[in-house]
Amino acid sequence: MELSAFTYTVYIATTPERTWETLTSADMSPLFWSGCAIESDWRPGSRVKLTREGVVRSSGQVLECTPASRLSYSFIRRYLPEYESEGASQVTFEFEPLGAQTQLTLTHSGFPQDSKIRPVVAESWPIILSSLKTLLETGQPLSDIRRSAGQLVATAGGC
């Protein structure tokens, strides 16, 4: 028996292409992703890793990649044994144009019944995706997001 998937939809006043480029960029991601850089060549089967200050916090494999449309990767949190022992969950992003905007839907699924990761990512994703939206619309991410996140369980910001 698995816990339910976490789903979050955000609407961003930009194109799916720009949303895609920012979300998958190792240089841009730390700006909105609590200091985490996401790195991959985004080919199916390739490694995906999330690092903060050079330390790999999470990693997985690209499951599906259609630029500006759909991205899916497996996700294992590496930095605490209790997280790592949960094994892999799956992160999927879907990008759809809606008028002049992008509808970005995140689905994070595959959590075991006693998952310690699900509550953390459920807290983190709205912060990360709110900051991504702010960055794309204003040129600046939400500020101090990592220190702010430290007030919550969500220190890792889903990374």
Binding site: S4, T7, Y8, T9, Y11, A13, L98, S130, T134, T138
Partner: peptide
């Protein structure tokens, strides 16, 4: 989610989002 995103855009960048006529939006959050 659409209207909350629109509210955030309005406060941060000065303009809300526009829902195209007839659009079916979103899949929500939980």
């Amino acid at each position: 989610p659409f209207y909350m995103a629109s509210l955030k855009s309005l406060l941060e960048s000065g303009a809300g989002l526009e829902l195209p006529a007839g659009a079916k939006v979103g899949r929500g959050a939980n």
